[in-house]
Design a protein around this nucleic acid. Sequence first.
DNA 1: CACTGAGCCTGCTAGC
DNA 2: TGCTAGCAGGCTCAGT
Length: 280
Amino acid sequence: MPELPEVETVRRTLDPLIRGRVIADFDLRWHRTLEYPDLDAFTESVIGAAITEVTRRAKLIVIHLDSGAAITVHLRMTGELLFWPDPGVERNADREPYLRAVFTFQDESRLLFYDTRKFGKIAYRSASELGNLDQQLGDEPLEPGFTASRLAEILSSRRRQIKPLLLDQTVIAGLGNIYVDESLFRSRIHPLQISSGIDEDRVRLLHAAIVNVLATAVAHHGTTLRDYRSGLGEPGQNQTRLRIYGLKPGTACPDCGSPLERLVIGQRGSIFCPSCQPLS
DNA sequence: CACTGAGCCTGCTAGC
DNA sequence: TGCTAGCAGGCTCAGT
């Protein structure tokens, strides 16, 4: 599932490819892929607009338009945003059933949105709507402002289980199930630990783990377990660097050898080592 | 405020 | 081997 590193990789690959291109057509293949506004309003707003740059906020890809507005794309679980340069070359036929939306540019190159499970969302946002959205989202963990003391402030000001807290995009933006499990394992914190009860040294470890895990994953173009691809269709390389995510309960902890456990926390499967990550 | 559960989806897999 | 029930999960919304 695309989290910050995967979305960032898509952003980086797409930005130089679609910057400056002018949208000539929009073809919606699955009506619910378009989140806002309705198809007519969306089409009217984006046709003729030129793309100025592609940025990222949390897990959102933000395609900025010369009007000051933007198109946001959320990949959710299985979304893929792919640049297709050559209109003459046939698209991958067996992927065609999962094609949910197509932006065609004036030069007939295309931006394709594939999404097997139809959870992904495309929306148009005015400059002010974009500002509101930004305000609703939490800290960017790879920005300089996200320091250990800032994390300490976030954790101590709430009394919540650490895992759901880290997954809350209004608190910290961009973490998902994979990187939260990895970060908690590396900093030896139980996923049900109450945030305000984590001591300062442990918070420092957690901060280092989050930053390190995310930065490493970005450097390796994200984690591809199944569906995730970059804007060029390339899989990521970070999957070999995961230490605990994907392991089954009962298998030996890679650090201490004791059997791993699985819990469902906030509707998400959570793998951890009860020995390395004791609840305190 | 913190937490829970339903709903959105469909490919894959564990278990029969 | 073939079938099917249930799992996977980011996010929103409603309810406790």
